[in-house]
Design a binder for these strands. Sequence first.
DNA 1: CGCAATTGTATTGCGCGCAATCTAATTGAC
DNA 2: GTCAATTAGATTGCGCGCAATACAATTGCG
Lengths: 152, 152
Amino acid sequence: MAKKSMAEAQLMLGNQLCFAIYSTAHAFNRVYKPLLDRLGLTYPQYLVMLVLWERDGIAVKEIGERLFLDSGTLTPLLKRLEAAHLIRRTRSSEDERQVLIALSAQGHALKEKARKVPAAILSASGCSIGELSSLRKNLVTLRDQLNAAVGE
Amino acid sequence: MAKKSMAEAQLMLGNQLCFAIYSTAHAFNRVYKPLLDRLGLTYPQYLVMLVLWERDGIAVKEIGERLFLDSGTLTPLLKRLEAAHLIRRTRSSEDERQVLIALSAQGHALKEKARKVPAAILSASGCSIGELSSLRKNLVTLRDQLNAAVGE
DNA sequence: CGCAATTGTATTGCGCGCAATCTAATTGAC
DNA sequence: GTCAATTAGATTGCGCGCAATACAATTGCG
C-alpha cells in the first residue's frame, strides 16, 4: 500500500523534474522574447548567432553538434538568417557536402546590440551568480547523462 | 582586463544556464520518446494526461494554468487526444464558454501502462532521488521568479 | 580502380508553442 | 434591463524540433 502510493506520487506532475525543466525553459523563452524581438531574432536563432560570434566560417554540422540540433531544424533556420542578411551560406570547396556559415557585416554588427541581453536575463532570474552556476553545472551533468542513456 | 573578461564571463552565465535548460529539456524529450511511443503519446500529451489522472472533468483553462500553456496549443492537442479516444470534450452546461475534459475508459486505463515510465526516466538520469528533488526545487523557484519578472 | 558504405545537407510531414485575432457567453456598471 | 467589458475557446500563421527519407559527395575496402 505504501508502495502503491509511492508509484502514484511519481506520476504526479508537481513531483516531476522533467516538467520543472520544461516549464522553466518556456519561462526563459518568455523573458528572452521581448529582448530578442529588438534584435529580430528568435531564441534558437540567437543560439546560432552566439556560436557564430565565437567563431564563424564553420559547417552546419558543427553548429548542430554544439546546439544538439539536426539539419531538419538548422537548414530552414539558417535560410531565414540568410534572408535577414545576417549570414552567408557557401558550399565548401574542399568538401562539397559541407555548407559553411559565415557572418555578414550586419551579423557581426548585431553582436554589439546583443551585449546587453545577458545582464537583463541575469536580473530577471533574481538569483545570485553562485546559485545559477551550480544549477547550470548540475543540469549539464544531467543532460550529458541523459544523452548517454539514449545512445545506450 | 582580467576584471572585464570576468564580468563578461559572468554576464554570459544567464545565457549558459538558459542553454543548459534548453538542451536538457531536449535530452529529456529524447529519453521519453521511446517510452511514450508505446503509450501513443507525445510528451505534451503525457503532461495533459498526468493532470487528468490526478483529477479530470476540469476545464481547458485549468489544464492551461497548470502546464503554462494556452488554448492555441491545447485546443488541437486535446482534439488529437479525443480522436485517440482517450478523453471526451463537452461544453459545460453551467458556463457554455467552458469545455470540460473527461477521461474515457481507455484514458483511465492508460494510467496503468504509464506507471513504469517514471522509474525508467529515473534510471536514465543516473541521479539519486535526492539530487533530482533538489534540482527540481531550484528550477521551480527560478521558473516562478522568471514568470514574475515577465508579468512585471 | 570499382563499388559499397558513410557522411553532410536538404526535404517532407507532423506536433507543438505562442502571438494575434475572432466568436460566443458571461459579468458588471449604470 | 442594457450595453460595454471581460472571459473561455477556437483559429490562423509562423518557427522550431525531429523522424524519415532522399541525394550527392566522399571514404574505404577489396
